[in-house]
Design a protein around this nucleic acid. Structure first.
Lengths: 258, 258
DNA sequence: CCAGCGTTTCCACTAAGTGGAATTAGGGGG
DNA sequence: CCCCCTAATTCCACTTAGTGGAAACGCTGG
């Protein structure tokens, strides 16, 4: 038997840890409280295993037990780890202040995101508002990769193989308008290649324009600028795109100098 | 042998998962990039084990590999989980908007925090600034429990046994000014019991006042109000304390109605 | 090209984890 | 008040998945 013996502590990673993380991932906006049964269903893990792993996660401070409901919630630890991530992000550190300044100067929203599986997650999202007292930052929010300018810019920035892998996943997910959607995505990608940016109106009345940021040794990021309460027009997209290209160039310059 | 056989899938939790979480925890503000060796040192785990677990964490999307430095960084996933936590927090959902309004009305900083081990972590921290354009929210930031009004209010709010456990930990940590510090902490706790709040100037020039929020079935939280560029005075502390008590009462009312 | 160091892989060993079945705990409803 | 019903937890025979010291590997700077 030529097949070499596969040892358990092997290359494919630690099963329990993987499963524990998957449990944490089962909580997301809109799913704030989960019992062991529901977790088992969502993750496909056996009930007894879930019971043991949730116990561990509670002991480690990642979950809070809601005894009254026989359920769990994400604990405060997860945001302190999240905070550490933002704090340690070299890209956000380098250009966060510039993003805020740019938002004020151009009077539009500026965001920075990267991928989490098939979603884009905002590292920072500065919402411009003339009444500046309103909330301005949403970090950690997810938006779908296929449907947003951010996601498509990201797709344009990553390696061929990874891109095709993701496109296949989108195909599998949305059985419906797949053909049109994928064509749309590819158009956006081509737009990035040609003009440096792509424009998408994912939500009605908001025009978003995004561009990838590719740096060796770091994940690919995407920068975007957006405006609410406007109609999508080529002219406007072009204008914002020009701002974005200029801003991204400045950012890359700063980032190149570590 | 009376000792019942202890089975491995036992009550004490899953070892690998615990260790994986400990690795994530090793990253914190100021420690943004860690190699396997450094992780092994900080966590006390054997190098080969760390190597396997970090691989798993990369596969699960919790860590990014920085190949150039043979090191890892927290990945974007952690902030999306953090975001889910904030989104799902019933307390933050119930009183977040009120906190913002209160900050504007009273012209001071308003914060909400809870414990992560021996640290307090902000779920929300609204920094009042007359020039409202400045950044306003810091979620996930940690401050030491023993030294802050937030932490001492928390200590006043939790059960006796847990409080004593924590106090013992503080004693072990800061070998130095322990006696005075612990007395100080107990004074603050008594202040909470008597007046509903305690006042501490942890950072020079900022006066912070905090009160616990205790709800059945949820972790204990602490609310605080603070002001920069002031001297600590009993009068001022009393004034802010009164505001805080009033505000906390309103919050508890809202929270009581789920 | 080699030396030195940190990382990854190997592998014998077995404790640690697994999951189906049995048990227990909770919490309405009769 | 007690009894069901549901869902979570514990039990435990089984064995695989994980462990960690040692060896191999692969950078990087001299």
């Amino acid at each position: 038997m030529a097949q070499a013996r596969r040892y358990a502590g092997g290359v494919d990673g630690n099963r329990s840890l993987e499963r524990g993380i998957e449990i944490l991932r089962a909580f997301r906006p809109g799913v704030d409280t989960l019992g062991n049964g529901e977790i088992a269903e969502r993750t496909g893990l056996p009930r007894s295993t879930v019971s043991r792993l949730t116990r561990t996660l509670v002991n480690s401070g990642m979950l809070d037990e809601v005894r009254a409901m026989r359920a769990y919630r994400l604990a405060a630890s997860v945001i302190s780890i999240g905070h550490a991530m933002r704090t340690g992000s070299p890209v956000l550190n380098a250009i966060g202040a510039m993003m805020r300044a740019e938002s004020a100067k151009r009077r539009l929203n500026v965001g920075l995101a990267t991928a989490d599986r098939t979603m884009m997650v905002y590292l920072e999202s500065i919402r411009y508002s003339p009444r500046a007292a309103l909330r301005n930052v949403v970090a950690g929010q997810q938006v779908p990769m296929e449907l947003t300018s951010l996601g498509r810019a990201y797709l344009a920035g990553i390696a061929e193989a990874e891109r095709e892998r993701l496109l296949k996943l989108f195909k599998r997910r949305s059985a419906a308008a797949t053909k049109a959607l994928l064509a749309d995505v590819r158009t956006s990608i081509r737009s990035v290649e040609r003009n440096g940016y792509c424009a998408v109106s994912w939500q009605p009345g908001v025009l978003a324009v995004a561009t990838p940021i590719v740096l060796g040794g770091l994940p690919v990021y995407a920068l975007n600028m957006s405006l609410q309460n406007v109609d999508r027009s080529e002219a406007l997209a072009g204008e914002i795109g020009a701002y974005l290209n200029a801003f991204a160039a400045k950012c890359k310059e700063v980032l190149a100098g570590q």
